[in-house]
Design a protein around this nucleic acid. Structure first.
Lengths: 197, 197, 197, 197
DNA sequence: TATGAATGAGATTTCATTCAT
DNA sequence: TATGAATGAAATCTCATTCAT
């Protein structure tokens, strides 16, 4: 008995949007299935038409951010340009996606620990693959003398963390456009590891 | 029927250590009062001799990190040295405390949203005061031409985030000593905002 | 896994009947939610399909007595008959309802103190409105010389108390019918305040 | 290690006074042992120097009212005066004690159901003996033609209830003195069952 | 007489999930 | 696709009480 005017697709989108908002604001564990249902305008039983279980829903939200991020970054990291250009592009892409999808970003960055089993493995693999792209670019830069750094992986993580912060405070109506912020962070990253001349 | 040989002080320490470990690993919300009690070796009822409520316990763990951090940083930020020296010292102190107390650090950095009411207000005030110290130092550096940056507060937060990441992966038996890592992060921070000559 | 053959309506009635019995016999506070659930034949979790919280359930049981009582009494008190007739009718209605619904009556009369906030306010308002009806009738009687009394409100409360006692000991299979008892109490009330000729 | 200046006797009195206030206001079940201790200014463990268990304390408070009431009423009921005089005296004594000790009275009248076992038996015996005194006086009055009533025990209970109400609203600084109120209730009682001439 | 620490049981309420309709 | 009713387990917290000190 579907309410007139509501299609499954719309409902699904509403559920996902609501979950994004709640998980990001309160955390996955602190968000109850009934609050989620209530704010999405359906019963909690109906939720299970749109998700396997609560954890599946979380994983699919994470995928929604991490898969595009990984995809774009793969293209960037393997492109045929100088390491500095690629590092800037990686940073820009990271900042842009974190600014455009701050909710999904926050969830992806903080709720890994809520996952278990296969879902956890899947997400860890995505994250590791992503980190490896940054490492590869930095290694290239170190090799050709553009960059200088003591521990590549460690620095890669530090720079990613630096760009990740954006999702915590960026507002579309804030003082700077997302493009400006992306440029600033790209500058910070490159400045941080550029080899002294 | 108090187990012979256990004093209140010891039990309190055991409770706090257990809470640090569990809250850091699983998150505050995902950690139940009974698990906490079980792993601390007491009943859940006895927990309430050592805390007002679960949220009070969380707040006191956060204070344990944020108050020392704020105190040391205040001394640094108001010392009579060059901005670059002070910024390096801030970064080193931040990294050092986050490396020494990674559990408390992780909790302080991720569980603010679990607080409500007065406790939330108190912690936000601590955090804001801390951020203000970094901002002040950066402003000083910009004024005397050492640093160049577009938006002080934004950059301050980005640099703090950068140093915060340490608590996520640092291990005492890892490849670098904490001092080395602190130096590296201080380098990253300064490099990131040093004015081009 | 809903037991076949049980509908929500039946369950709700069973819950309310059980609550009436237990609250009346043991008191609201002394009755646990699990005992209530057990004796109603459901789980304690399922109780919450039928009530907001324990206090809401109490308030709704009270309403079940006080609203009809107030309604009937309003009709009586504002009817166009002599004060003595109206007082007798008030007493009879009170006794009758207290005899027919002794459990609800006992609860309404003794568990006000278990309520808080808005629910308490609502019930106090009902009680005050009810007392005011008796006062009004007595005042009318005093005015036309039928009754004589020093303090109307005080006497009104005393007479109501007198009729209330019925719910404590009346049994349908006792020595007197409820109608007889009602008559007796109406007699007592009128005799108690009739002006001496 | 008794705090200087506090004697056991004083503490005991403070405990009993506190218990009277709390049990009367909130009910026996709703009053926790720790609230009681806190408001009496001792630890909950120390309470057990002054009482066997919570239920013992309740019983002793009840005795404090019911034994004097029974004693005085026994003297009255067996005195060599006319039934009407004795009934008035019973009512006056009841009202007086309920007005002077409204807290104990309220507890004695409402918390019987919180007792179990021997303590319950003891209190029921006191109550029954007391009721029997009223019944005896009324019977005497009926015999000599002063009173007229259909069911002695039933009427006795109704009149006791009527006088009991006093403890619910009497305030020493109210509109009437306790003596006046006692007189009014004695009047009500006698008027209610006086045989028509 | 008093305390601090502790206990086992239980309080009310919510959890994620299931299932016949 | 959606619902109302239900579940077993667990949530946080309080209960009255005990006992070595």
């Amino acid at each position: 008995m579907r309410p007139v005017g509501a299609s499954g697709v719309e409902t699904r989108q509403r559920v996902e949007a609501t979950a994004l908002a709640l998980f990001a604001a309160q955390g996955f564990t602190a968000t109850g299935i009934r609050q989620l249902a209530r704010e999405a305008g359906i019963t909690s039983a109906a939720l299970y038409s749109y998700m396997g279980c609560k954890e599946d829903l979380l994983a699919s939200l994470m995928r929604g951010l991490m898969e595009p991020l990984l995809e774009r970054s793969q293209t960037i990291a393997t492109s045929d340009t100088q390491p500095e250009v690629r590092l800037r592009a990686l940073a820009r892409a990271h900042v842009r996606l974190h600014g455009e999808e701050p909710l999904a970003a926050r969830i992806a960055d903080t709720e890994l620990r809520a996952l278990t089993g296969d879902l956890l493995g899947e997400m860890l693999a995505l994250r590791d693959a992503y980190e490896a792209l940054w490492v590869a670019v930095i290694v290239d830069g170190v090799r050709d003398g553009t960059f200088a750094c003591a521990d590549t992986r460690l620095v890669a993580i530090a720079l990613i963390d630096l760009c990740t912060g954006v999702s915590g405070w960026y507002r579309p109506d804030g003082r700077h456009t997302l493009e400006t912020i992306a440029t600033m962070h790209a500058d910070l990253c490159v400045a941080a590891i550029r080899a002294p001349r």
